[in-house]
């Protein structure tokens, strides 16, 4: 059996820094000391395993998973689909992908969201699925609306969907947000702009995917998710327990 090997170290210059002053909430919530870098042990190389007993088949359809029978949420019907890959460009199969989002009016179904736009009685705003053997996943939902938030007086979040992914190890755990091609708010958002490298931001923007649309029914956006890749163990003499 192949020896468990480490995952590539996270490129911290590619991710947002903990402290990003224009995103004000980060100021008091960002550690000041440097992170302590660990060589990975079993604690980091392992991680939770999920299966089809954990979720239900309809959990990935936000058009129906909270709607009353025969009704649908208001909004632009979209398919969000793509693959979960690792940095070696290999598929990450059977991994749990969870999403949450505002409704088409930019309102979240959350007891702490007080925005003027109404909740939609037929929209919960969350979904989950397992990637298949090729790392492929898909959801059906409505395109979320932009909404205002308190940072500067006049900040608006671009339309976005929050995505949580596990991978195969606790060190791959990731939460991110995907945005939609062509949204002018992306460039103006202090949360998006916490990411220093424009190339990293581009990879959070899902392109319109006309080939995957269902004609006369649902429009599609494609979003691939990349998790940390793993070293191979060639030519290494590794003591027991690594």
């Amino acid at each position: 059996m192949r020896k468990p090997a480490e995952y590539y170290q996270r490129d911290r210059a590619w991710h947002p820094p903990a402290l990003a002053r224009e995103y004000k909430t980060s100021v008091a919530r960002s550690p000041s000391y440097a992170l302590i870098s660990l060589e990975q042990s079993a604690s980091e190389i392992t991680g939770p395993v999920f299966g089809h007993n954990d979720i239900d088949p309809g959990d990935n359809d936000l058009l129906t998973n909270y709607a009353q029978a025969g009704e649908s949420p208001i909004g632009e019907r979209i398919i969000l689909h793509g693959r979960v890959l690792d940095e070696n460009a290999r598929p990450v199969p059977n991994t749990l992908v969870e999403i949450w989002q505002a409704n088409a009016g930019g309102r979240y179904r959350h007891k702490k969201d007080m925005y003027l736009a109404p909740v939609d009685p037929n929209f919960g705003g969350c979904g989950r699925t397992l990637s298949d053997e090729d790392g492929y996943y898909f959801f059906r939902t409505v395109k979320p609306g932009a909404y205002p938030w308190r940072n500067w007086v006049n900040n608006w979040r671009p339309a976005h969907i929050h995505i949580s992914v596990f991978g195969s190890s606790f060190s791959q755990r990731l939460i991110t947000q995907m945005y939609f091609e062509g949204d002018p708010l992306i460039a103006k958002c202090p949360i998006v702009q916490t990411i220093p490298d424009p190339a990293a931001i581009e990879r959070l923007i899902a392109p319109l995917d006309l080939n995957a649309t269902i004609p006369l029914d649902t429009i599609a956006y494609k979003f691939d998710i990349v998790l940390r890749g793993r070293r191979s163990t060639l030519f290494e003499n590794r003591p027991e327990g690594n």
Binding site: T25, Q101, H162
Partner: peptide
């Protein structure tokens, strides 16, 4: 190699999803 997808904050409404 591909680059890892960049992280973004879970935001105040993480409960909806998780």
């Amino acid at each position: 190699y591909l680059k890892e997808t960049a992280s973004q904050t879970a935001g105040p409404f993480v409960h909806i999803g998780l």
